[in-house]
Design a protein around this nucleic acid. Sequence first.
DNA 1: TCGTAATGTAACAACAGAAGTTACATTTGA
DNA 2: TCAAATGTAACTTCTGTTGTTACATTACGA
Lengths: 146, 146
Amino acid sequence: MQSNSRLAVAIHILTLLAFREGEQITSEYIASSVMTNPVVIRRILGMLRKAGLVTSHKGNTGGWQLAKPIDQISLLDAHAAVKPGPAIALPLKEPNARCCIGKGIRCALIETFDDVEQVMMDRLSGITIADILNRVEGVSLSQPTD
Amino acid sequence: MQSNSRLAVAIHILTLLAFREGEQITSEYIASSVMTNPVVIRRILGMLRKAGLVTSHKGNTGGWQLAKPIDQISLLDAHAAVKPGPAIALPLKEPNARCCIGKGIRCALIETFDDVEQVMMDRLSGITIADILNRVEGVSLSQPTD
DNA sequence: TCGTAATGTAACAACAGAAGTTACATTTGA
DNA sequence: TCAAATGTAACTTCTGTTGTTACATTACGA
């Protein structure tokens, strides 16, 4: 299948909250920006809250806001919060242990894929929501360079 | 979903062919090592052949073998051959262009994710089937270090 | 030249995870 | 006490992956 897009949505949400910092933002409003259903957004907001990245207020005037300064939320934080499976998946069934290659390949693949995933994580950890917001505003406002 | 495991299977196949270099290996034999159906294996072998990594012979005594020396096949080659989608997926629907963040976020995410994916690819390009075979044999034979 | 055992591929079923949707209990400020 | 929000469960829909069956084609060797 297409693998899940929760990280992309999570970053979209965090960037929106960053843009509107100080305000209470509703899941409905966010959903209209992401173009999806508010429940989908609340599901992801729930994960972000569990990870300590956002806070919510119930009730009539409730909504969501960031729990930290925007330059202290990295994409790695968002990634960890929404737990998308491994970047490179293993087969469900274990290989045949009676085959010389089958016996050792899974372990070798795990080591290798973990290693590759680690460099991805390192890169994600160096990018913050502040960076993304900058980039988005740069595009949206298409500010002149002189 | 769990995203597809074709890269893992492809590496398993290539490593097996490397181990048995010089011989004609059948899809049935490979399937019994991977613990799956021969057709699944042939599908992936087909992709590997299209990428020039393996060759096949039809007919009674047919089978498969590597098309290149094992230290000249990188995991990046295998990755390109089996085309697993992007490591980090975008949502199917475009965000709302009438929202300031929605308007720019997709572009920013694409740039960012491409960047992250690139470091993964760089790492994959530095690992060859020869490396994997070494690692597997190291585990399987659990060779003493003295 | 004929049988055997392989590739090559189409078609379909089974399965699983993601995303969308509806419904509703709960909360809280005005 | 009403209105509007969160929080969550349950279910549906969709889509891609994997597994399976079936069969045409190929080519070696007896």
